[in-house]
C-alpha cells in the first residue's frame, strides 16, 4: 500500500500563535519529538492526534492538514 502523503501547516500556525513545540506537544498530548517529525512532514498522525493538534492551534483540521 502506498504511503499517505499529507502536507501540513503546523509550523506556520504554531509560529503565528507564538507557541513553542513543547507547548503544542503538551496541548495536543504528544511528545515534542512527534511535533518535530510532523513539522518536517516525516510523520503522518492518526486522526485523533490530527484533531488534537488542530484544536490546540485553534484551527479547523482542513486548515492544518491537506492531502498532497
Amino acid at each position: 500500500m502506498a504511503r499517505a502523503r499529507i502536507k501540513n501547516r503546523i509550523r506556520e500556525l504554531r509560529e503565528a500563535s507564538e507557541m513553542t513545540q513543547s507547548q503544542l506537544a503538551k496541548l495536543s498530548g504528544c511528545t515534542r519529538q512527534t511535533i518535530i517529525m510532523l513539522e518536517q512532514e516525516r510523520y503522518v498522525p492518526s486522526l485523533s492526534l490530527a484533531f488534537a493538534i488542530a484544536d490546540a492551534l485553534n484551527s479547523p483540521i482542513e486548515d492544518v492538514f491537506e492531502p498532497e
Binding site: 498530548g29 504528544c30 511528545t31 519529538q33 512527534t34 498522525p45
Partner: peptide, 8 residues
C-alpha cells in the same frame, strides 16, 4: 505513562 505517545 503520558510521555509515550502514539508515534513512540
Amino acid at each position: 505513562a503520558g510521555e509515550i505517545d502514539e508515534r513512540d
